[in-house]
């Protein structure tokens, strides 16, 4: 099962001829991801890593069944390229692009909603369903197939925790990052909802950070709807007040957005609290009675 992508998912890469697009096409294919088409305007007819390149997304969907897309298109062209994806009926887009303006991003999400499509990102490292498929940057060796679902805002933190889980012999169903904001497509809550419905996922690891209200919204969903165990770690406990730490939204303003406040809500929702990746492992082992 896993969520969002699996061994059958056929993927299109937007911006496949760029440096990142080409490298990830190679790594994704090596991993076994079904990369069936690429798009870069003006490069139709070429091949990248054996993947046919088209000028237009509409041409690619005429030639292949496409279930999902991953975009490496620069921020300047992002709005147009996202609309192109949604207009052909593709329902899931992994948007790795950083630096998309907030106004463009709300337009893109509003448009996706009218088409019933989901966006992971922007600025996401993507996702991996270990042993099945990956769309994005997750280094394959840090993951192994299993039954723990991992949601993070930060990409690097989802590698860090994946690596720790894998080294401890704990496999994952799907690991993903939603990006650093301040405007998001899918939220942590949306992903928790998908893990809830996935029979293969037994335990959910929720990785949050200071700032914003997304962890609080996830906590509310967990309280009201979730019947799977959750382990959570919120980073930025030692963060100074009033400074954005790398993600635009990762900021404590006054007494709002602190790790302590988020942890309190998540604990009330029934989540177990970890303060390091090692503690996440310990708690999962306890939950499994190991």
């Amino acid at each position: 099962m896993a969520i969002l992508i699996n061994e059958n998912t056929q993927i299109l890469i937007q911006g496949i001829t760029g440096k990142s697009g080409a490298l990830q096409a190679k790594v994704m294919k090596q991993y076994g991801t079904k990369v069936v088409a690429g798009v870069t305007p003006g490069r139709g007819g070429q091949e990248v890593e054996g993947v046919p390149v088209y000028d237009l997304v509409s041409e690619a969907v005429r030639a292949h069944r496409i279930d999902a897309a991953i975009s490496f298109v620069p921020a300047v062209f992002a709005k147009d390229s996202c609309m192109e994806i949604f207009d052909v009926g593709i329902k899931f887009l992994v948007l790795t692009t950083e630096g998309i303006t907030d106004h463009d991003m709300v337009d893109i999400v509003a448009y996706a909603r009218t088409k019933g499509a989901r966006i992971l990102g922007p600025g996401t490292a993507g996702l991996i369903s270990p042993g099945k498929s990956k769309a994005g940057a997750h280094p394959p060796r840090m993951y192994t197939e299993g039954r723990v679902g991992v949601i993070s805002k930060s990409g690097a933190l989802s590698y860090e925790v994946g690596k720790n889980l894998t080294e401890a012999g704990i496999g994952q169903s799907t690991v993903l990052s939603v990006g650093g904001g301040p405007v998001w497509g899918m939220t942590q809550k949306d992903v928790v909802e998908l893990f809830q419905a996935d029979p293969e996922t037994e335990i959910i690891v929720l990785l949050g950070e200071i700032g914003g209200t997304m962890e609080e919204e996830a906590a509310e969903y967990i309280t009201n709807h979730l019947n799977k165990p959750v382990v959570t770690m919120i980073v930025g406990r030692a963060a100074p007040v009033g400074k954005s730490l790398g993600h635009a939204g990762a900021i404590i303003e006054g007494n709002k957005g602190t790790a302590a406040a988020k942890l309190e809500l998540l604990q009330k929702a029934g989540a177990r609290i970890a303060s390091s990746p090692r503690e996440i492992i310990q708690i999962i082992k306890e939950m499994r009675g190991e």
Partner: peptide, 29 residues
């Protein structure tokens, strides 16, 4: 650090280990 999340995690771990960070510096992914 080369990630915001791991940078913040490291900041926390430095504090938990009894140290104090001189700065936060994150380069982007």
């Amino acid at each position: 650090s080369d990630g915001a999340g791991t940078g913040m995690l490291t900041l926390d771990l430095i504090k938990d280990s009894g140290g104090n960070a001189a700065n936060f510096c994150e380069m982007g992914g």
